[in-house]
């Protein structure tokens, strides 16, 4: 696995730049990852990112967009505004989690 430097720290990432070890993540890292994809995190973003982290910790899997809406209580429309174009992928990236793999 490649190692890269984000926020002056060395982290393990896959070839797409997603963190491979959720334990290397903290909120400062989340902020740095978000800025890599041009997003400035506000309270609403954090609500989504924290839900992703908690749900992943509980279930061992990155939640899908639908799950963030249904179980996390954030409307899909809003997720598209917060993380334009590819909310599921972008949220996972910022939260330092693998891409959701609901799609096979």
């Amino acid at each position: 696995m490649p190692v890269t430097t984000i926020d002056n720290r060395q982290v393990h990432v896959n070839e797409e730049g997603f963190l491979t070890d959720p334990a290397e993540w903290d909120e400062a890292m989340g902020k740095a990852l978000a800025s890599q994809i041009g997003i400035d995190l506000g309270d609403e973003h954090w609500k989504a990112i924290r839900f992703l982290r908690e749900d992943f910790a509980a279930r061992g899997e990155t939640p899908t967009l639908r799950r963030v809406t249904v179980a996390g209580g954030i409307p899909t429309k809003q997720l598209f505004q917060l993380f334009p174009q590819k909310p599921a992928k972008k949220m996972a990236y910022v939260a330092g989690l693998p891409k959701p793999h609901g799609c096979v």
């Binding site: 797409e16 890599q36 994809i37 041009g38 990236y93």
Partner: peptide, 10 residues
């Protein structure tokens, strides 16, 4: 294994 492009490239 599954692969695709990073979100920041799209």
């Amino acid at each position: 294994g599954p692969r695709s492009a990073p979100p920041e490239e799209e």
